[in-house]
Amino acid sequence: MSAPVFERIGVLGGGLMGAGIAEVCARAGAEVRVVVTTERSRGAARARLERSAGAAAAKGRISAEERDAVLSRVTFGTDLGELADRQLVLESVTEDENTKVKLFRQLDAVLTDPAAVVTTNTSSLPVTRLAEATGHPGRLIGTHFFNPVPAMPLVEITATAHTPEATVARVAEFVTAGLGKEAIRSTDRAGFVVNALLVPYLLAAARMAESGHADAADIDKGMTLGCGHPMGPLRLADLVGIDTLRAVAAGLYEESGDPAYAPPEIFTRMVEAGHRGQKAGRGFHTYT
């Protein structure tokens, strides 16, 4: 295996996306350090990685030796200072602008490599606004991965006016040659490419269920059997997470003012009831 574009990688966040990003980076041969906020989160992030890598080995996608190598390449911590020597830091925390900006400003004081690159996995927030809130706007770039990260082949890359073309090229090479993903480029606009098209579709399905026009099962069956979609929109909303989808939609609506992005009231009621989708066992559908 050739040396990865970035050999020392940091990941901020150990949820489904953060753990998935750590896994694919470790599969590429990089040494990965995941930083989370609490000891409990550290244990949960490690367990997610172990389950995912173990499942990949059980299904024959990677060998048992590769699984062990992946797990050996990833360490977990709670101190942001542990990322000081990283060449690349991939942020994948909650979709909240204030939280992300606070972390990026802390990284300004932590990273020692002047050529270090920082990426954000935001699916809706303006990358330029995040970059300009830091002391080094030229090193922040958008890399939007999709869930589940080890299985989904796409990454959206979003540069800003501050991003040197050499940085864009390094990140694109890392995504394609390093991780084996496909990359598409998007301007820094609401929703980039995928969510600009997908979110209004998911919200329209939620409004249809909310109005009583059809129930969730029939809406999903209509789109899978009638349009050939691999998954219905409400089951996909459950997979994304109702709370996550509501936050993404709210961010898109705030930036664009387009009513197609306005989160429906049913999302608020579902989140308040704890029906946050597949991860909670219940959303538009029920999961065991």
Rank of each mutant, 00 (worst) to 15 (best):
Met270Gly: 05
His136Met: 01
Gly241Met: 02
Asp258Trp: 01
Pro233Ala: 09
Ala151Thr: 06
Arg207Thr: 11
Met208Gly: 11
Thr160Phe: 07
Met223His: 05
Pro259Ser: 03
Val199Ser: 11
Gly178Met: 04
Asp243Leu: 01
Lys221Cys: 13
Met231His: 07
Arg269Phe: 11
Glu165Met: 10
Gly232Thr: 02
Pro153Thr: 00
Asp218Thr: 15
Thr244Arg: 07
Asn195Pro: 09
Ala217Tyr: 03
Ala177Tyr: 00
Val271His: 07
Val194His: 05
His144Lys: 10
Gly191Cys: 13
Ile184His: 05
Gly226Phe: 08
Ala216Phe: 06
Met231Pro: 08
Val240Lys: 12
Val168Thr: 14
Leu239Met: 15
Ala159Ile: 09
Phe267Glu: 00
Val271Ala: 10
Arg269Thr: 15
Phe174Ala: 11
Arg235Ala: 15
Val149Cys: 02
Lys181Tyr: 03
Leu198Phe: 06
Arg185Glu: 06
Leu225Val: 13
Ile157Ala: 10
His136Trp: 06
Ala217Asp: 09
Pro153Trp: 00
Thr143Lys: 07
Asn195Ala: 12
Ala247Asp: 14
Leu234Ala: 03
Arg189Ser: 15
Phe145Tyr: 11
Val149Arg: 02
Leu245Gly: 04
Ala247Pro: 08
Lys181Thr: 00
Pro137Met: 05
Ala190Met: 12
Asp258Arg: 02
Leu197Glu: 03
Glu265Asn: 12
Ile266Arg: 14
Gly228Gln: 09
Ala151Glu: 11
Thr163Leu: 09
Asp188Asn: 15
His229Gly: 11
Leu245Asn: 04
Arg170Asn: 02
Glu265Asp: 15
Pro150Ser: 02
Ala183Thr: 07
Leu203Ser: 06
